[in-house]
């Protein structure tokens, strides 16, 4: 691992500080599409700050499971962020880390769903049920995308797979993998067309309804963890497309790339409606098929 202290600090600070900004970019894009001014770019920072300063209200039904959900899911998001490359090598990297990355996020989902069920509300149960159901389809798509990249690069480490160096040898595969990963990212981060983060009707929510009973610092942990996950996913997409260059230029290119992903998400959310829930599996099967075709290309 040729990781300098500067690179480590840069990785950590980007991972810890930038995530809420990405959500600000998405919100601004959506506002621009809607012809509105929109919330400030730093809105989520204000929200987090306010939530951390609040007291808490817990449901009488809940147990330690409810309190474990937010903290463990934030911990897994941050550790997944240490496994994923932002610029240069990731702080933690080993052959097979791609699988571990997927399962760490799975652990976060498992405890979040358990915490949702702990409140004993039918709405939260509904959200948990949808979340785990859709995740079952997102996982194979992610693993197939990883398999395609592993076949193309001969490496099982995220850093080597997402190096942006494959355009020449595996161009069509990159397009397919990128498409699949984009769809999976939308599903895993509860964005339109899988889930609507801005909806106000509990019956139609997935992720939002799971955290209905969380408030105060718990909600802050959850919102922050979600933004970290989104940043990590966006970074994977950026690293797939852009060649990696360490140093300030690399960071500038990466920042611009992540901002573009944010704008792209905002554009998707502004231009289409949330899909009906029964169509979500089909949406993810498209991702699975795209990744499977990429695997076939990589086997050629």
């Amino acid at each position: 691992m040729n990781l300098t202290l500067t690179a480590l600090c840069a990785h950590l600070s980007a991972l810890l500080v930038l995530p809420p900004l990405l959500l600000g970019i998405i919100a601004k894009t959506k506002a621009a599409f809607g012809g509105r001014k929109g919330p400030p770019l730093l809105q989520l920072y204000y929200d987090l700050f306010k939530l951390l300063g609040k007291g808490a209200v817990y449901s009488r039904t809940t147990t330690w499971m409810f309190r474990l959900g937010p903290v463990l899911s934030l911990a897994t998001a941050l550790l997944a962020g240490l496994l994923a490359p932002l610029v240069g090598a990731a702080p933690l990297s080993f052959p097979g880390d791609a699988v571990f990355f997927a399962y760490l996020l799975g652990l976060g989902r498992f405890v979040t769903a358990a915490a949702a069920l702990d409140a004993g509300s039918s709405f939260e149960g509904m959200g948990a049920s949808r979340e785990v159901a859709f995740a079952s389809f997102a996982e194979p798509a992610l693993i197939l995308a990883v398999a395609a990249l592993a076949g193309a690069t001969g490496s099982l480490s995220l850093g080597a797979m997402f190096s942006g160096a494959l355009w020449r040898s595996f161009g069509a595969g990159i397009v397919l993998v990128g498409g699949a990963l984009f769809l999976v990212m939308l599903a895993e981060n509860s964005r339109i067309p899988v889930d609507d983060p801005a909806t106000h009707l509990e019956l139609t929510m997935i992720h939002e309804v799971m955290v209905l009973d969380h408030g105060g610092p718990d909600l802050a942990f959850i919102l922050y963890g979600a933004s970290v996950r989104l940043l990590v996913w966006s970074s994977l997409l950026v690293r797939l497309a852009l060649p990696d260059a360490p140093g300030p230029y690399g960071w500038a290119a990466w920042g611009a790339g992540v901002a573009v992903v944010g704008v792209l998400i905002g554009a998707v959310e502004s231009s289409m409606a949330r899909a009906r829930l029964v169509h979500v599996p089909q949406f993810l099967v498209v991702a699975i098929c795209a990744a499977a075709f990429a695997v076939m290309l990589s086997l050629r």
Partner: peptide, 12 residues
């Protein structure tokens, strides 16, 4: 390699 997708689906 497609077995990996099966294993992932099973995990989910």
């Amino acid at each position: 390699v497609f077995g990996a997708a099966v294993l992932a689906l099973l995990g989910g």
